[in-house]
């Protein structure tokens, strides 16, 4: 027997979640599909390929206050920001859930990043399987799959007049409504995804570090931050103080290893000043350093960077070029 919720009951459940928590789901605004807080169930887009930005923003905001500096009567006090509301992230695909699991590795490694941990602890992930992978998707080559429930709390798979309900975690189990019933029903098979030759890529990367390939690739790169900002697993950030009138806050914002001053220290020295070295850093971090440190590739194969890159830097092409280069260079 499989657990099941009807479409009508799903809507009722989502309405209840909107009342009780913050519900973040894919919605369309200005022609863009983005994860945003919703107040009406009808605004939720259920049938989609990929959102423009990944839902990482729910845990690692584009900009977030870490603490506020309060000064009173000559005394200074630091007031940490805290996450005080529960959130449901609804409608994310398995690749984006895997992206969060990958970000957990650096953020929750001891000493854990407090705010990120709080966002994670107070957010429940209700995912939808990916029914129509795009041509630029390659999740199966990165260890995921369009129907992979692993990193979600609940997976809802559309079938008949409703959804098959799979509670993956205790947190998911807790949030389910009583309208979930048992029914004899078969899950549709996952769609196929075009593979990329990623096997052994991390080892091959070691051999091609000095190849002129990277500076040639960087010829075309304009060094914007698009790839990093649309990516579910890019987690570089900047920290500075924000002061406005008497208000002082320490804030963290997204940054990208592609930006010109990323490694430039005060005084002007920059160990990674060339375009080639910067672009190489992006691919080495994902395909070599991150796996070395955390045992997993820093990419989920969602294809967002491929679609959004203004000059067609295509990580699938990079992976297959690296394999070819590595074979040529030998071990």
């Amino acid at each position: 027997m499989t657990r099941f919720i009807s479409k009508k009951d799903l809507i009722t459940w989502l309405e209840k979640l909107i009342q009780e928590r913050i519900l973040i789901a894919p919605t369309t605004k200005n022609g863009l599909l983005l994860f945003q807080p919703v107040s009406e169930v009808e605004d939720i887009v259920l049938d989609f390929q990929n959102t423009e930005l990944s839902p990482k923003e729910c845990f690692f905001s584009a900009t977030e206050t870490l603490f506020a500096v309060k000064r009173e009567d000559g005394r200074t006090e630091l007031v940490p920001a805290t996450v005080d509301r529960d959130t449901v992230l609804f409608g994310l695909h398995p690749c984006d859930a895997m992206g969060m699991a990958i970000n957990d590795k650096p953020f929750l490694a001891e000493p854990a990043d407090t705010l990120y941990g709080q966002h994670r602890a107070r957010t429940t992930l209700i995912g939808l399987p990916c029914s129509k992978p795009t041509t630029e998707c390659f999740c199966t080559s990165m260890g995921g799959g369009p129907h992979d429930p692993t990193h979600l709390d609940v997976l809802l798979t559309e079938a008949e007049d409703g959804y098959i309900v799979q509670a993956v975690t205790g947190k998911g189990e807790e949030i389910l409504p009583s309208s979930v019933v048992e029914r004899e029903i078969v899950s549709p098979p996952p769609p196929s995804v075009e593979p990329v030759p990623a096997a052994g890529i991390s080892e091959v990367m070691e051999r091609v570090f000095e190849a002129p390939y990277w500076s040639r690739l960087a010829d075309r790169c304009i060094h914007c931050n698009i790839c990093a900002y649309v990516c579910p697993t890019c987690y570089c950030f900047d920290v500075r103080d924000y002061a406005n009138g008497g208000r002082i806050e320490r804030v963290r914002s997204w940054e990208s290893c592609q930006s010109p001053g990323f490694t430039r220290i005060a005084g002007g020295y920059d160990p990674r000043s060339s375009k080639g070295a910067r672009l190489r850093q992006r691919f080495y971090h994902k395909l070599r350093y991150f796996p070395q440190e955390f045992g997993a590739l820093g990419c989920v194969g969602c294809g967002r960077c491929i679609r959004a890159c203004p000059v067609n830097i295509d990580i699938r092409e990079v992976i297959s070029d690296v394999q070819k280069l590595g074979a040529k260079i030998g071990t």
Partner: peptide, 16 residues
Amino acid sequence: QEQFDRCIRCYACRQV
């Protein structure tokens, strides 16, 4: 304001 609110300061406009 509505247009700029969604800017993520990726600086692609500048870089290109």
